[in-house]
């Protein structure tokens, strides 16, 4: 079992490696994409500098803490888009019958599908997260926590998109719904959790779990809290498992019209 998981991870990493090599064929375009994504993300610092010049405390966050929140949002977005780009296209893959070529491979179908391509600009998102961490004040402990939470949050985003895209097995087109859900996660992730009150706060801990993917990790990095850490890890395992279950349940309903495509 453990050997199988190890082999699967090895295959996925190889798939990502070849996708990176493909993208790096045009080095200028690859580097431009990364650099411009970092500049693109940096522009939002202006917004928060201006807002914090009006008030020192917004929703219980200082400027430095909002930057940390932004860094984590960016880094986790990068993890999901860089390593699992095709998860965000899963609905189209299902609807166009393009799963056929993955079904005949002796490896995990879902992982094979979602790791076949990378988004170079997402590397810029990940790097931006660490640049922000440097500004915030990096320590070894913070570096480890930030990396762990970037991975967890990235996995949560990917898992949610897989669940909603997999609905295509039952309802045909679900890409719009998945896209919207992904948009909600990104939108809420970059604003201090403290500005949301009442029902909204509960929605952000359940239906749109930004509270667990972003707000709690920032709280742990501000003041270490073991129970929050365990909730984040537990939820990540739960949502990733759910994504696998939903995808494989849906896969049983999959049918195609024998689309002939060559995978090189």
């Amino acid at each position: 079992m453990l050997m199988e998981v190890k082999n699967q991870i090895k295959i996925s990493l190889l798939s990502i490696k070849y996708a990176i090599m493909r993208e790096m064929l045009n080095k200028i375009s690859f580097i431009t994409n990364i650099v411009f994504m970092i500049i693109n993300n940096s522009t939002f610092i202006i917004q928060w500098v201006v807002l914090f010049s009006i008030k020192n405390d917004i929703g219980g966050y200082s400027l430095n803490e909002v930057l940390l929140l932004w860094g984590l949002a960016s880094s986790s977005f990068g993890v999901s888009r860089f390593f699992f780009k095709k998860a965000f296209d899963l609905s189209t893959t299902i609807n166009n019958g393009k799963l056929d070529s993955y079904l005949v491979q002796p490896k995990n179908v879902l992982l094979s599908v979602i790791t076949t391509d990378v988004e170079p600009s997402a590397l810029g998102d990940m790097l931006y997260g660490y640049i922000v961490l440097l500004i915030y004040g990096i320590t070894f402990k913070l570096f480890l926590l930030f990396t762990l939470f970037s991975i967890c949050s990235g996995l949560i985003i990917t898992a949610i998109t897989i669940i909603f895209n997999s609905l295509s097995f039952w309802f045909g087109k679900s890409d719009l719904l998945a896209e919207k859900m992904d948009g909600f996660m990104t939108s809420f992730a970059t604003y201090p959790g403290g500005i949301f009150k009442g029902v909204t706060k509960w929605i952000l801990l359940t239906i749109i779990p930004v509270g667990i993917a972003n707000y709690m990790p920032v709280d742990v990095m501000r003041n270490f809290n073991l129970s929050y850490l365990l909730i984040i890890l537990g939820f990540t395992i739960f949502i990733v498992t759910t994504a696998f279950i939903v995808f494989y349940k849906g896969l049983k309903r999959y049918s195609s019209s024998n689309l002939m495509i060559a995978k090189i």
């Binding site: 009006i54 917004i58 919207k180 948009g183 909600f184 939108s187 604003y191 403290g194 500005i195 009150k197």
Partner: peptide
């Protein structure tokens, strides 16, 4: 999506 953004801005400005 617009509704969500407006909702966020409303909360943000009410906090400011």
């Amino acid at each position: 999506g617009f509704f969500v953004m407006m909702f966020i801005f409303l909360n943000l400005w009410q906090a400011i």
